[in-house]
Design a protein around this nucleic acid. Sequence first.
DNA 1: GTAATACCCGACTAGTTTAGTCAAGAATTA
DNA 2: TAATTCTTGACTAAACTAGTCGGGTATTAC
Lengths: 155, 155
Amino acid sequence: MKLTTRGRYAVTAMLDLAIHGDTQPITLADISQRQEISLSYLEQLFSKLRREDLVRSIRGPGGGYQLARGFETIFVAQIIDAVDESIDATNCQGRGDCNHGEVCLTHHLWQDLSDQIHGFLSGISLEDLVKRGGFRASSYMAGIVDAQPLTIRDQ
Amino acid sequence: MKLTTRGRYAVTAMLDLAIHGDTQPITLADISQRQEISLSYLEQLFSKLRREDLVRSIRGPGGGYQLARGFETIFVAQIIDAVDESIDATNCQGRGDCNHGEVCLTHHLWQDLSDQIHGFLSGISLEDLVKRGGFRASSYMAGIVDAQPLTIRDQ
DNA sequence: GTAATACCCGACTAGTTTAGTCAAGAATTA
DNA sequence: TAATTCTTGACTAAACTAGTCGGGTATTAC
């Protein structure tokens, strides 16, 4: 799990799509204007989002992008994973030989933290983001923790 | 909150210090050898750790570094904050004018996520890391969630 | 006092990533 | 057939990472 501005751009753009794209396809030019993200950069991002089947594209006049499925089934973690190729939180690519052939001191800490963040963002859907007024995460965060206990997930 | 290998190095080094430095000061050369981190790079990191009063330095032969206080009062979040100057998770540096003078769509999401991660890591002390066999984070994470409810913190 | 030890500090750097730009092309509709 | 919109790939400036290098300064032991 990697968290950069690229992931933020992608989630913002997908959220724009979820808000405005319920009926007709939305052009990247529209998203670019509304969200102040460069068009060419959006093209790069949507290329990846399409490959991951998060959006559908329609060419030609009247075309644009649509969510590939219902916004209640698209989660923040999926969007971020699609555009931010996830680096290993660990140093040894999970081999466990980071320190003289042994597991390094903090290996598990980073692995688990990474899983935690991923689990957290896997619980927030575009629907959640659309429906909460002002898009504050605080309110549903409590709910998420109740709903899915913080155990370690196998990514 | 920013999570890079620099933060990982710093936590690893501090953990080494917590494990080996209970009686005499530990030299960076020792840590460098044990943890396979370049000496010069460690010097940079410890310069920051010292400025944040997480370690004490003793010069001259027999000198080295010690934890500045008990390992039960030093938390992972503090270490990472000391070496990874925290970038804003938001795009507008908290001004809230990220989109045409208004708050951007995902502003709060990132702010809250950042706070969440920070909260997690603020609950893990060096003592926790030293005492758990194998340093697995999973076990005490559940405890942390019980202990400090996931409300939004003012950083 | 002088040599060795160890921290201290700033300048520099190769490589990678980020956040783009630019140009050409392909599909679709009017 | 022209306009629209997605599609793709090559390129790039700036920033960041993970270091190296070279010279300090404080302290201790002899």
